[in-house]
């Protein structure tokens, strides 16, 4: 991205003249051309729809203990098999998927939003604002997460529980916590890109034309800095789903009887050599989600890159 003149579409000379379209529509047209991205978007929507509406069709209770059917492999009665208490894994996966996906996306949104905000402001301004924001970033990077988590949850759990109920309260806490520990890399990435981009000719040009700083940032610099951010954001979804499982393990996440995907994977790990199906499905679900999100991310990136011709 760094070190170039303002790019012009390299093949535009020979292209037939097209009716001008709005950038949004243009991006959509480009996105549709990216076949993997479209397929991934479809698969991702199927996963999301399944966890949203699946429990309506698969009505087995998630906590029905059946000691006569423990650690069973997939069968018609239990398509994903059962865990060590004989609970149906499909039902648990569908239920847990809602939480895992919601946590993943929401935490990613928080991290990316805060990260871009801090990174962009630090990157475009110099001197004391940059120093102060980097101070904040360094602070967050060096805070020990575990005691801080203990403290946050201990301080706010009861208050939030009164406001929005136990499950929603824990959800908000976890999203905030994971999000607030995930924005620093995004911020530093964006800032680094800004350092480089703000010296570029096209920015100089825009500035010379009298563009205000916000316009400069939003219209000119930010779109060019989004590449690494999209990658970071898509990785953040995976990181958030995994971080939630670590939190659950430490007793800071959802109550242990709520089967999030990360939690299922964690519970399954000691039985890996005897009951691989238990780990296979949640692991596969996380992988599928990450895979599709990343391809969608790639598609978006290419679609938003004005230099590419598709």
């Amino acid at each position: 991205m760094a070190g170039s003149t303002l790019a012009s579409p390299t093949a535009s000379a020979g292209a037939p003249a097209r009716k001008p379209v709005s950038p949004g529509l243009e991006a959509w047209r480009r996105f549709r051309k990216h076949r993997l991205a479209v397929a991934s978007a479809v698969v991702l929507s199927v996963v999301v729809l399944a966890v949203l509406f699946g429990p309506l069709f698969w009505t087995v209770a998630i906590d029905e203990i059946d000691f006569s059917a423990t650690l069973e492999g997939p069968s018609w009665a239990h398509p994903f098999g059962t865990d060590d208490l004989g609970q149906d894994l499909l039902a648990r996966m569908l239920y847990g998927g809602r939480i895992s996906l919601a946590v993943g996306f929401a935490a990613m949104a928080v991290a990316v939003f805060v990260g871009i905000l801090v990174g962009a402001v630090a990157g475009i301004s110099r001197g004391s604002v940059d120093a102060a924001l980097m101070w904040l970033t360094d602070l967050f990077l060096s805070l020990p997460q575990l005691p801080l988590l203990l403290l946050i949850i201990y301080l706010f759990r009861d208050t939030l529980r009164e406001w929005v109920g136990p499950e929603m309260g824990v959800f908000i806490l976890i999203v905030l916590v994971i999000g607030s520990f995930g924005w620093m890399p995004v911020a530093r990435l964006v800032r680094a890109q800004f350092f480089s981009l703000r010296e570029k000719e096209f920015v100089e040009a825009a500035r010379a034309l009298g563009a205000s700083t916000p316009r400069l940032v939003i219209r000119h610099i930010l779109p060019n800095a989004l590449g690494p951010v999209i990658v970071a954001g898509t990785i953040d979804v995976a990181a958030a789903i995994i971080a939630e499982s670590t939190l659950s393990f430490l007793g800071l996440g959802f109550p242990p009887d709520i089967p999030t995907w990360g939690r299922l994977l964690f519970d399954a790990r000691d039985h890996l050599d005897f009951a691989p199906h238990w780990a296979l499905f949640p692991g596969g679900a996380i992988f599928l989600t990450v895979l599709t999100i990343n391809f969608v991310g790639d598609g978006l990136r290419d679609a938003l890159d004005p230099r590419r011709v598709l």
């Binding site: 995994i242 670590t246 780990a279 990343n294």
Partner: peptide, 26 residues
């Protein structure tokens, strides 16, 4: 390369660790 990378970071280290132990040690 992409697919392997996705597998790489969608599996937590507590899981890959056990997987490695089961395969290479046991």
């Amino acid at each position: 390369a992409n697919t392997l990378a996705f597998i790489g970071f969608s599996l937590p280290t507590f899981f890959t660790g056990i997987l490695f132990i089961l395969f290479f040690s046991i």
